[in-house]
Design a protein around this nucleic acid. Structure first.
Lengths: 203, 203
DNA sequence: GAGCCCGGGTGACAGATGTCATCCGCCTGT
DNA sequence: ACAGGCGGATGACATCTGTCACCCGGGCTC
């Protein structure tokens, strides 16, 4: 019996090593590659051709979501499982759009990981059930690309003028977009709007 | 040879399980207790009397820092290692004040964990070297308690008026504190100030 | 008791933010 | 050819923020 070959991408080295140790305790699973950022993971996919890729979302260089999308392009036979802290409907939706086969939360019991790897390897989908329900019920991202760009920067503490300069827009326009975003999100000001958007995974 | 008994506290069950798997691969270490929140961890210390406690900082019920302090009170023979994402001088300082013997970052290679456990068990201290240097160089928290309260709320997106009402202060006073905090932190506005303070672990 | 620091408050002012109505090009579908 | 939409801009206005100078009352200490 040949083992299921798994690649892992996770930016916190300690967690990466720990996840690898966890999977290595399974007799039918082998970890063939590890990466601490998205770009490295993508390179590793080409070299090792694993059956399954387990990846975090928030990573330097390349996010797990874009990694999933790239992987589908270049190595369509690799099945991707997103493993993340964030129970954000927006992330799940984007993950599925990017062709991910699994979406698992880091606060699930550790036994579920190996299970998910096996299931996905068999061709099944594995989606965190609570999150799936929530995502179905929840409204889709109401923000336009511009609003996202601007709200993001506003959330970092940059001023209207700064943002306008950076995006080559007029100051008034930036305020308009911000105003629009604030009202779409039902917030009282840019700060709260940014927080809400982040919490939903829209940012 | 009897193994080093380790307890682990970490709120993300998946990571908890993975860390346990990682430590279990070491022949001289055994994981005798696991907890996904601070209170449960404290209870486990009483029951299992481990040699070493490895704990995250940000957890529900009780933070790893207060857990460390409580542990020193009730089970002074247990050596505590803080294992966290956050390279914040403020956290390190508070951890050491609380009697922690180790402070390790989650983005260090996973091999360092077992190493740290052994060292701390032998009675040594293990502090992330870069962080230690930074903490020594870095100025101590410049914020007063009031400023902290107010800046925290401002960072959540609450308005000056809101905050004043909540803390039973006048609106002008809140603005004064905020202004003071902003200038202490060298920020351009309350949002940036809150971000900076958070990054330093002062908030 | 005089002087002084500290938490808190006031008032005034400039500048940043949030809201609206309106306008202008530029596509796009019919 | 024309009506819409859409991204972007403008101007005006009200409100919120950030800053500053100064005031008050209670504890200190000398």
């Amino acid at each position: 019996m040949s083992k299921i070959q798994v690649a892992i991408a996770e930016d916190q080295a300690m967690v990466l090593g720990a996840l690898a140790a966890l999977l290595e305790t399974e007799p039918d699973i082998a970890v063939c590659a590890r990466a601490t950022n998205g770009r490295a993971a993508l390179a590793a996919l080409g070299r090792h051709k694993p059956h399954v890729l387990v990846t975090d979302i928030e990573m330097p260089e390349m996010t797990g979501l874009t990694l999933a999308a790239e992987a589908r392009e270049r190595c369509p036979e690799v099945r991707v499982i997103i493993l993340t802290t964030f129970a954000r409907p927006g992330y799940l939706r984007r993950a599925l759009d990017a062709g991910a086969k699994g979406y698992l939360l880091k606060d699930r019991p550790s036994a579920e990981l190996a299970d998910a790897v096996r299931r996905v390897h068999r061709g099944q989908r594995v989606i965190d059930p609570e999150l799936a329900a929530e995502a179905w019920a929840s409204e889709p991202d109401p923000l336009t690309e511009r609003e996202r760009q601007i709200l993001w920067r506003a959330g970092e503490g940059r001023s209207t003028g700064d943002i306008a300069a950076e995006l080559c827009l007029s100051e008034g326009t930036v305020r308009n977009y911000l105003s629009e975003a604030i009202s779409k999100l039902g917030a009282a000001n840019r700060i709260e709007a940014a927080r809400l958007a982040r919490a939903k995974g829209w940012l």
